[in-house]
């Protein structure tokens, strides 16, 4: 269970997140949605202990990230962009993580298989395609077989097959009783996978609820369009031309 209460974060005069409240529950995929600069990444960074809030709390299983006893076994995290040394192999990157996290090397081979990087594991990660880099990031997130997965724009760089693979992965993760919180711009993708959505804009909560309550239970093929309409409606007063 992920809980965010009264979360506020300022960068100088800019309020990145303001009094944010939401939760993400086990067995559900929760999508954090908002335009660029809405505060999604800042919120996830605070949850992961990479940034400090000015007020409020962001906890995972009742604890701040820094207080987690075995963080890799509790939370898998996928952040935006690459987080590996380009001259080291994908396998070496994961072995370093496994050693720090007190995990066995067998787990490294296992997650490499799960993300489909087994054949490329010993290649330098700098030679990987965008999709392979994303898969390596996911392998790192899954390394500790965590109960919670937090992913910032997980679809970035994935091709259509990769998107489908990711949907299945996240779905099976949540169906196994685990918690998934992701941020995304790809509303069509979100509509296919999310159970709950949280809309934020300019750091403020502008809506949340079960996806079916928001887009209805009609034709799933049109769910993405309905979610987009809802997204634009909820952020319309703050989005549009004044952002350009």
């Amino acid at each position: 269970m992920i809980e965010v209460h009264g979360l506020t974060k300022r960068y100088g005069p800019v309020v990145a997140v303001h009094d944010l409240e939401f939760s993400a529950r086990p067995e559900r995929v929760t999508a954090l949605l908002g335009p660029n600069g809405a505060g999604k990444t800042t919120t996830l960074r605070i949850l992961l202990g990479l940034a400090r809030p000015d007020a409020g709390t962001a906890t995972i299983a009742g604890h701040r990230y820094a207080e987690l006893h075995a963080p890799l076994r509790t939370v898998g995290a996928l952040v935006e962009g690459d987080t590996f040394h380009p001259a080291r192999s994908g396998r070496a990157h994961l072995q370093v993580l496994a050693t720090i996290g007190g995990l066995s090397d067998d787990r490294v081979d296992e997650v490499l298989r799960v993300v489909g990087l087994g054949a490329a594991a010993d290649r330098r990660a700098g030679t990987y395609s965008q999709g392979m880099r994303r898969r390596l990031g996911l392998a790192g997130a899954l390394l500790g077989d965590p109960r919670v997965l937090i992913a910032d724009e997980p679809q970035g760089g994935l091709d259509p097959q990769g998107m489908r693979w990711l949907r299945r992965l996240l779905r099976s993760f949540a169906d196994g009783g685990r918690t998934v919180l992701l941020s995304s711009h790809l509303l069509g993708e979100v509509a296919q996978i999310a159970d709950d959505v949280v809309f934020i804009d300019r750091g403020r909560l502008v809506g949340c609820g079960a996806l079916t309550d928001i887009v209805g239970t009609g034709d799933p093929a049109h769910a993405g369009r309905r979610l987009e309409e809802e997204f634009l409606r909820r952020t319309a007063g703050l989005a549009g031309e004044d952002r350009l």
Partner: peptide, 21 residues
Amino acid sequence: GEYRHRTIIPLVLAEPRRLPA
């Protein structure tokens, strides 16, 4: 280089207690 290649992020995610790390 930990900051240049952002490998500091998996390091602090795997071990958030920064002083021992």
